[in-house]
Design a protein around this nucleic acid. Structure first.
Length: 147
DNA sequence: GCCAACGTTGGC
DNA sequence: GCCAACGTTGGC
């Protein structure tokens, strides 16, 4: 799950322990939260659009998907005029901190053939939420984060 | 349904 | 700031 650290960083999650993953305005990413994620699933917390992009920590999905409150908030940059309370358009899950880790930079991720097929590394990928295969998860947590 | 125009993402 | 890639919008 990508976040711009200037908006919400791993240190913010360390402080808050838990957060709604608000502001997702892309149907594919939304559908991952609504249909693919399960309570207890773990996710990489990825810092994007920043001087040193990469995986900054691990979090855990701790709610089912529910309507994203920011779509109803006129003052929010994520406000969605077309959304109605009785017919919400955007949903989010909550995630809680598992741990902040050493930063596994994008450059490092790209160095390893084991991760060549990772969705987040795919050419032109802009999705803010992408699936991670078990082998990729194990390589990152078992090898990269141990060195 | 097509597709051009436009806006956004995100690495560099 | 640049630009490739992609998603969305809206006229037709």
């Amino acid at each position: 799950m990508k976040s711009e650290p200037t908006e919400f960083s791993i240190d913010d999650l360390v402080r808050d322990k838990k957060t709604p993953w608000f502001g997702v305005r892309n149907y594919q990413a939304r559908n991952f939260m609504m249909k693919e994620m399960r309570l207890g699933d773990r996710v990489f917390f990825y810092h994007s659009s920043c001087p040193n992009p990469g995986i900054a920590g691990i979090a855990e999905v701790c709610s089912a998907a529910y309507p994203d409150a920011t779509q109803f908030d006129k003052k929010s940059p994520h406000f969605e005029p077309a959304a109605k309370k009785e017919a919400p358009r955007w949903f989010n899950v909550d995630v809680k901190l598992e741990k902040k880790t050493q930063l596994i930079s994008l450059a490092t991720l790209r160095e390893h053939p084991e991760l060549a097929r990772m969705r987040i590394l795919a050419r032109g990928n802009r999705l803010s939420i992408t699936p991670v295969e078990p082998e990729e998860w194990n390589f990152v947590t078992g090898t990269l984060m141990q060195s």
